[in-house]
Design a protein around this nucleic acid. Structure first.
Lengths: 209, 209
DNA sequence: GACTGTGAAGCCATTCACAGCT
DNA sequence: AGCTGTGAATGGCTTCACAGTC
């Protein structure tokens, strides 16, 4: 375990392996090989073993991996052996949809607050949380010890919101706005660019015929 | 008929460059250098030039690029010089949010149909389109010559819906469900895995301290 | 002097292939 | 015999550095 930098692609695959293992566990499967995991998630078996090798030796030669054990390791590696409180900024359609997305809860992410600056929707309830104004950002973040923020505001507001989140102590940001954001060192940023994803499809359709 | 293989990362950046150029154009800027584009979107200037070099020589040495001209080239490269009709399968919160997402319309994607199998929401109107049952899939796809499908159904329904889309003539799929999908050769697939994105953040928060 | 276009170098992730265990 | 773990080979994207052009 003498590793500095883990490839991001590896981390994403670990997340996918862990979900696959959860399914296998529910099916009652107790032992699994790298080849079976690979077939299940659409990668090569050497890739699976290499990804795991960054973090230790979890298998038994000649046998494979114990599903529950490997799953436990992956959950710990991914930091999912605790609940992460999350704040969403932007309570439009997309922000509201994410706030109610079950997939987050299932994996240990809890949306504790959703903020917006539109007076027309402030006060509206989404199941158990209420849309609040941006002013409460700092309070909610320290109150719930929030480390992760999700941005679903329009492009022109995104950098300002980002700065406020960072200033309030958030350490990781998932950006759904179509804007390239800057964060200081020490803050992790990921960009889910919806239009870019469709445009890659458009490119492939246009270019390959 | 692939000529050269274009890295996917390049295509994604081209999409981002094009959006940045649109902004610069609106600001009235007529000429721009690779270094300015690079600074604007957070990459290196050599990267910008290499990305463009896959498709031709668009600049003038010693000067830079004409914004409107380069923008036009990128739009054509990305296949955005036409309108793409899109179908969404799954009219839950996320599917509805995507159906109403302005960013798609702004870039030439038109959501023509949104389907679901839940009788409680079939018939509901989202602005100008109405939620319809899955049975109309094939009709809508041929009627609007739809090549792109977006999947926002639960995991357990995703592969079945994918197969139906492919069978109905869709050639590109954007998958928002947390499920690894299989498509035949000739169909492009992209996966936007919301949980994976949060889990990468969780990993970074856990691992780097 | 400034900036593009590009071969070469560097770097990083993936795949191969096999030694090592069970 | 079967499967993991891993050094070596491969392949591919990014960065460098500079010749070419305005």
């Amino acid at each position: 375990m003498k590793v500095y930098k883990i490839p991001e692609a590896t981390v994403m695959r670990l997340s996918i392996y862990s979900r696959y293992l959860m399914q296998m566990q529910e099916k009652g499967i107790e032992t699994i090989s790298s080849g079976e995991i690979a077939a299940g998630v659409g990668v090569g078996s050497a890739q699976v073993r290499k990804d795991l090798a960054y973090f230790g030796e979890f298998g038994t030669r000649g046998v494979g991996y114990k599903v529950s054990e490997l799953y436990g390791h992956l959950i710990k590696i991914l930091g999912l052996n605790k609940t992460w409180n999350v704040i969403i900024i932007g309570a439009g359609k997309l922000g509201s949809a994410l706030a109610l997305y079950r997939g987050f809860n299932d994996r240990g992410f809890k949306v504790c607050a959703i903020l917006d600056n539109n007076p027309d929707i402030i006060g509206k309830k989404l199941t158990d949380i209420t849309i609040e104004p941006l002013e409460v950002m700092k309070d909610r973040i320290s109150q719930h010890d929030i480390k992760i923020g999700i941005i679903t505001v329009p492009a022109q507001a995104a950098q300002e919101v980002t700065d406020k989140l960072v200033q309030s102590g958030v350490k990781a940001i998932l950006n759904f706005s179509p804007e390239v954001l800057r964060v200081p060192a020490g803050v992790t940023l990921r960009h889910v660019d919806l239009s870019v994803n469709l445009e890659v499809l458009s490119f492939n359709l246009s270019f390959n015929n």
